[in-house]
Simulated scan of single mutants.
Amino acid sequence: MDAQAAPLPGSEPVSGRRVLCRMCGQPLRDRASRLWGLGPDCRRKLAVRSAPAPARHEVDQDALPGL
């Protein structure tokens, strides 16, 4: 392997422009964070806050009068 190998795509900021986290405003340093627009800590916080949808259950109801 060459010691002067090119960096991986997405490992450096594009044209020196800083990309900031949409949630906290910190600079994003890795490719996955820039793709999501969120840093790893903010993605983790959102994953904790998002809860699964409650299970659906049928309820026995009386028929409406007149139908």
Rank of each mutant, 00 (worst) to 15 (best):
V48C: 15
C24D: 11
L35Y: 01
S50Y: 10
G37C: 02
S15A: 13
A3C: 12
P65K: 01
G25F: 07
L38S: 10
Q61R: 15
R31D: 09
R17W: 02
P65D: 04
P27I: 02
A51P: 02
D2F: 06
H57F: 08
R56F: 14
L28I: 00
A53M: 12
R31F: 03
M1W: 12
L28H: 01
K45R: 12
D60C: 09
C42M: 04
Q26I: 01
Q4S: 13
V14H: 12
R43V: 11
V59M: 08
L64Q: 11
L35D: 07
G10I: 09
V59P: 04
D41L: 11
P65V: 02
E12D: 12
P65C: 05
A55C: 05
L67R: 14
G39P: 01
D41E: 14
A6L: 15
Q61I: 15
Q26C: 05
R49F: 02
D41C: 07
A63C: 10
A3E: 14
C21R: 00
L8Q: 06
A5W: 07
P40C: 09
R29P: 00
Q26M: 03
V14F: 14
A51V: 11
S33L: 08
A6G: 08
R49G: 02
E12T: 14
V48N: 15
D41R: 13
K45D: 08
L67Y: 14
A6N: 12
R44S: 02
L38M: 14
A63P: 13
M23A: 15
P65Q: 02
L28E: 06
R34Q: 04
G25P: 08
C24Q: 00
L8N: 04
R31T: 06
L20A: 08
W36N: 02
W36G: 00
P65A: 03
L64N: 07
R29I: 07
V19E: 11
K45G: 01
Q26N: 08
G25M: 08
L67C: 13
G25R: 10
G66W: 13
A63Q: 13
W36L: 01
Q4H: 12
P54E: 05
G66K: 14
P9W: 02
V14P: 05
L35H: 06
D60V: 13
P65G: 03
Q4Y: 10
P13Y: 03
A47V: 09
R29K: 14
V59I: 13
A6R: 15
P40V: 09
Q26L: 07
A47F: 09
L64Y: 09
R18P: 06
P65T: 04
S33F: 09
W36V: 00
